[in-house]
Design a protein around this nucleic acid. Structure first.
Lengths: 155, 155
DNA sequence: TAAATATATTTCAAGCCTAAAATTTTGAGC
DNA sequence: GCTCAAAATTTTAGGCTTGAAATATATTTA
């Protein structure tokens, strides 16, 4: 921790800060791009897409708390997003029998269909936006990202 | 574009999507962590810190439009953040002579002092959070990130 | 079983963020 | 000077996000 670069004499923290700022800028760029395309093409948003993606992977449905945990966002946040997805008929809330506190959330058939369409397009967008990444780098890259979370994240 | 992996036969787009999702998750993790520390330690936020960082680098001040452009956020967004920084006495709005439309924004001495304190701590936080990144990877990593933006971004 | 504690979710206030419309000022072209 | 488009900024409406408080139900424990 807090090592000094043997060659330059600079602390490594400067390098790490630099990496973080580049990562942040790139993620922001990609997100801005995706947000705009989601809005224009589907009159939707990235958070809604993320929620639908989670629900698509678990057709039996998910609890509100499972959703917020998986997506790393707050509980109250998910409530609002689900409210709007329900209004649009993409999602339903189902009561859990045996526990009146909990609510299960599921995609409707309409939601499943819509998501399939959006997901295919989303994948093409990413493919285009990440065009410049060397194929050979990807695995290594993913590894490094996982390392950042590994020792800190407790899930 | 849209090549197929010669070995697996899978389209590369799946790999790129995977990389993007990992990048997003890691960035979100680091941001959540930094947000909480900013809140607890300084009763402040990441967007405010980002704005102060920009202003610290240009002591003569920056136009509202320069700020929003550099930070890749909307114009109206910056207005609100600056409003609150002004309220707290960290920033002042200065009229530009020769152009009554424009406003220059500058850190106050109090703002400069506060930012120095926050920036030092922020660097330590990043150093800790990015602890697991191999020093030897950083340059390569930054390069790859820049490549993602390069062909698309026009700034 | 009654009381205390824990869990699942929603509500609330406040800040962040965007796109679009509105405001004010500037600069061209006539 | 007048008109009109462009530029800098703010305002507005609506969605996202958080942490904290409130609500309702379940579970533990005395």
């Amino acid at each position: 921790m807090s090592a000094t670069d043997p060659v330059t004499g600079h602390p490594m923290s400067k390098q790490r800060l630099r990496l973080w700022l580049h990562m942040l800028k790139t993620a922001r760029f990609v997100e801005n791009e995706l947000r705009e395309r989601m809005r224009i093409t589907y009159q939707s948003t990235l958070p809604r897409f993320d929620v639908m993606a989670m629900l698509d992977r678990t057709r039996e449905g998910l609890l509100m708390s499972q959703l917020s945990q998986q997506l790393m966002v707050s509980n109250g946040n998910v409530t609002g997003i689900i409210d709007r997805l329900v209004q649009d008929g993409y999602v339903v809330r189902v009561s859990v029998k045996g526990d009146k506190r909990a609510t299960l959330v599921r995609l409707t058939p309409k939601g499943v269909e819509k998501f399939a369409e959006m997901a295919a397009e989303h994948e093409r967008w990413i493919d285009e936006l990440m065009d410049n990444v060397q194929d050979s780098d990807i695995e290594h890259f993913v590894d490094a990202l996982n390392h950042i979370r590994k020792d800190h994240q407790h899930d």
